[in-house]
């Protein structure tokens, strides 16, 4: 069975590496994808008729925006699964994907503002519904991350966080529509994907970029989940077990431990 093989390799190396073949392949695909997207975005595609070269920002702006929403939605789905099955892993998936969603949301705002300065003559435009609602949503999810950061009993924290993640996902359409009605006008490019104004290669580059960023989201979430899982296990094992574990490792340098038995736990404490 694969699990046995996995265990065997892990104990053989003593220290499980941060990667396995599946995620490694995904990672390499992402890297290649980014190179192709960058090459297309900077060398192959033509400047836009209206926006000129600034259209090249779109190749990262639109994908990170989509990535952010995907992160929020995946987080809500994982949270719903957590509340049904109470599986700690689902809670950690929610944490990983929302954290990445927030990061992507911040990048959406930054790239949007950087695009807005030369285009509108100002970094921020309150009339732009998508940017304003993204800002509100990012703040909403920053609250989620803050809630996760307080510590305390892990089960009750997972439960609270799951409820917040689900509520926040329901806020997405409410926030977007209320901001839309608030201004009732948008200076944003009406969805460039669907209005058929883009040239073929531009459209292809954009779609490819969205695909690569989504793959990257999967890969990054996996990495982040793996970290969250290790930290969860570490906390589950408790400090005592962790120290025992480290002691067993330290037995390779036996003489040092025998010479000064107090030094060992003390150094552990400062690292924890």
């Amino acid at each position: 069975m694969t699990s046995t093989v996995q265990d065997a390799t892990n104990s053989a190396t003593g220290n499980p590496g941060p990667s396995d073949s599946g995620t490694r392949t995904t990672g390499i695909l992402c890297l290649l994808g980014f190179i192709v997207v960058a090459a297309l975005a900077f060398f192959a595609t033509e400047p836009d008729d209206v926006q000129g070269d600034l259209v090249r920002i779109m190749y990262v702006h639109v994908p990170v925006a989509i990535m952010s929403y995907v992160g929020f939605v995946v987080g809500a789905i994982a949270s719903g699964y957590y509340l049904r099955k109470r599986s700690p892993a689902a809670d950690l998936v929610a944490q990983a994907s929302i954290e990445i969603g927030v990061l992507a949301g911040v990048l959406t705002i930054v790239t949007g503002a950087v695009w807005g300065q030369p285009t509108w003559g100002t970094y921020w435009n309150w009339g732009d519904v998508r940017l304003v609602s993204m800002l509100v949503l990012v703040l909403l999810y920053v609250g989620y991350l803050a809630l996760r950061g307080v510590g305390g009993d892990p089960t009750s924290q997972a439960r609270r966080s799951a409820v917040v993640a689900i509520l926040s996902a329901f806020m997405i359409p409410i926030v977007r529509n209320s901001v839309d009605w608030w201004k009732n006008r948008t200076l944003h490019q009406t969805s460039s994907l669907t209005d058929g104004q883009l040239e073929d290669l531009t459209l292809f580059t954009l779609v490819l970029s969205i695909g690569v960023f989504l793959l990257f989201f999967v890969w990054l979430t996996t990495k982040r989940f793996r970290l969250a899982w290790l930290e969860y296990q570490r906390d589950e094992l408790g400090l005592g077990d962790a120290i025992a574990q480290r002691r067993a490792e330290a037995e390779r340098g036996v003489e040092a431990a025998i010479a000064n038995p107090l030094r060992d736990p003390a150094s552990k404490g400062s690292e924890a």
Binding site: Q6, S11, G14, N15, P18, R226, L230, R246, E249
Partner: peptide, 19 residues
């Protein structure tokens, strides 16, 4: 952080699938 945390968790519990 993954590297640091992996040192504190025994190998048989370090992976979600196998744990």
């Amino acid at each position: 952080r993954t590297k640091a945390a992996a040192k504190l968790v025994p190998a048989d519990r370090s992976r979600w699938m196998t744990t």
